[in-house]
């Protein structure tokens, strides 16, 4: 009996130790609960260049400041980091048209973040007469603005002045537009909505989900205050202002 127990213990111990980590840097294609590593022949790790199209997975690096040494001329009142704000987005389950739409959304995000109007809106956001966001993790509006420009996510805390996300498309007949897990770099977007969204709406959804990755949450209820949380309020700024681009 002790032998059997010992063997069982060793088996369970080895399962526990070999469980994969969903927050690894190497992207994986998760479909139907089965994880597969991407084809490595000629395909680059996301964030370092454009990945090859394998039919289902593509990597796209749209970051504007990955090691760039070229100084940016800044004749505006926004910080230079607003002008150089970039995005490293890894696509999963996108076709060419969907990727094109998402890339347009990313460009909209960059243009809005680079604008003085966005900076003004974030710094002056008010809730119940106070310049603040709801569920702000103790941060002032100015600190939240700086956190956006820093581009540091909870799972990738390096300040690289860029959004770093993986985006996977899926279909569900529910009213859920998208979801993410606190322990994952990936955001899932429902094509029931994505396929009819404008790039500006996609931009708003992307930024909302990315702000979750930065560490901001919101009430999980019908409370009025939810609209004044960082993901909701700033996501809405992106989609509203994005209509101008």
């Amino acid at each position: 009996m002790p032998k059997q127990l010992t063997l069982l213990f060793l088996l369970v111990f080895s399962i526990a130790c070999n469980k994969s980590d969903s927050g690894t840097d190497v992207p994986t294609d998760v479909s139907d609960g089965v994880e597969t590593t991407p084809i490595t022949g000629g395909e680059e790790v996301p964030g370092t260049g454009t990945g090859t199209d394998t039919g289902t997975d593509t990597g796209a690096d749209t970051g504007s400041n990955n090691g760039s040494e070229t100084p940016v001329e800044n004749n505006t009142s926004v910080p230079t980091a607003a002008l150089t704000f970039g995005a490293n987005v890894y696509f999963v389950n996108f076709n060419a048209a969907q990727e094109d739409k998402y890339n347009k959304a990313i460009e909209i995000v960059k243009k809005v973040v680079a604008s003085e109007a966005f900076r003004t809106k974030v710094l002056n956001h008010t809730y119940e007469g106070k310049k603040t966001f709801v569920d702000n993790n103790g941060k002032t509006n100015a600190q939240i603005y700086q956190m956006i420009l820093d581009g540091a996510e909870k799972l990738q805390p390096a300040k690289n002045n860029a959004m770093d996300v993986e985006v996977e498309l899926y279909y569900a007949a529910t009213t859920t537009v998208g979801y993410t897990y606190a322990s994952s770099k990936r955001i899932w977007v429902n094509t029931k909505y994505f396929n009819t969204y404008t790039p500006a709406s996609v931009a708003g959804n992307l930024f909302h989900e990315w702000l979750h990755k930065v560490g901001f949450g919101h009430a999980a209820s019908y409370s009025v205050s939810r609209d004044y949380s960082v993901p909701y309020a700033i996501g809405r700024m992106i989609s509203t202002m994005g209509k101008n681009y």
Partner: peptide, 28 residues
């Protein structure tokens, strides 16, 4: 050994996905 096996079982098969954050279409 039995207790440790049971504890490891809980850890090995527990859902590690973390908190789910999902929301509906903004217009809806």
């Amino acid at each position: 050994i039995l207790i440790m096996t049971l504890m490891l079982s809980l850890g090995a098969f527990a859902d590690e996905e973390g908190v789910l954050e999902a929301h509906g279409n903004p217009e809806d």
